[in-house]
């Protein structure tokens, strides 16, 4: 049985096709989220990747902020539910998931069976999200995907506010004016995101093992800063950005009657 999970985020669209709710047979990730052609492209890409057709799918679940606008299915689930399912598939011992997406951050607590116990979401604010990193990378004129490498070369991370993206932007410009090395500014930016989201996680309660999901999980600078903030190792998988889609595909399999 093949099932498809579609995760329509604020900046990207991701798809996973699972065989019998376990084995990944196709995946896709395209830039362009809710309100763009990204979701349709992601579905087209994942079907091509798996060499399957839409008719082969016995269940489809959409998740992410664009889930209710998805034309591929009328089955939706919240991204927290799907990230919990996806992360638990990859890391069966995970108890705390930190999901930092394009426009928000979420912390999820799981029990030993992978059931969600509680969760917290950030306030409506770009600080502590992928959007924050995009803005900062833009000011520094370096690709967002290279932020982790830059942070890894820093010896003295700069102090950047974790309160507000607008204030932080001014601080970064001041640091540039003071000729602070770019590596140190980037490390400070990563620490800023990590500190803010770590506070959210601590409010909920952090139990090991801890993993990160969402696009920002790809950033080694934020992951390292998060480990420092939480005093815990952070599990990482290259599939972290696809956990939502994976969980959606798993849920579609469960709904289809296994």
């Amino acid at each position: 049985m093949y099932t498809l999970g579609i995760d329509i985020g604020s900046t990207t669209s991701k798809c996973i096709i699972l065989e019998d709710g376990e084995r990944i047979v196709g995946s896709s990730l395209v830039v362009g989220g809710m309100g763009t052609k990204g979701p349709a492209q992601a579905v087209e890409d994942v079907l091509a990747d798996a060499s399957l057709t839409r008719e082969d799918m016995q269940g489809i679940v959409a998740t992410g902020y664009g889930r209710n606008k998805c034309t591929e299915t009328d089955q939706q689930a919240s991204e927290l539910t799907c990230h919990a399912l996806g992360a638990h598939m990859v890391f069966p011992n995970v108890r705390t998931i930190i999901d930092i997406g394009g426009q928000d951050a979420k912390c999820i607590s799981l029990d030993a069976q992978g059931r969600m116990l509680s969760f917290l979401m950030n306030d409506k604010c770009a600080a502590g999200t992928g959007r924050f990193l995009d803005v900062m990378a833009n000011i520094l004129t370096i690709p967002v995907g290279e932020l982790g490498d830059y942070a890894g070369r820093s010896a003295h991370p700069a102090a950047i506010s974790s309160t507000c993206t607008v204030f932080a932007e001014s601080e970064v410009i001041s640091q540039l004016a003071n000729e602070t090395p770019t590596e140190d500014i980037v490390a400070g930016i990563c620490a800023s995101v990590a500190t803010r989201v770590a506070s959210l996680a601590k409010r909920m309660g952090v139990k090991p093992e801890v993993c990160m999901s969402g696009g920002v999980a790809q950033n080694s600078g934020v992951r390292h800063a998060m480990e420092v903030s939480l005093g815990q190792p952070i599990l990482f998988s290259p599939l972290a950005q696809l956990f939502g889609a994976m969980g959606a595909a798993r849920l579609a399999w469960q709904k289809a009657g296994k």
Binding site: A77, E79, L80, F119
Partner: peptide, 10 residues
Amino acid sequence: RTAIETFRDI
């Protein structure tokens, strides 16, 4: 909505 849907799932 996301928070409430997730709460319902819990």
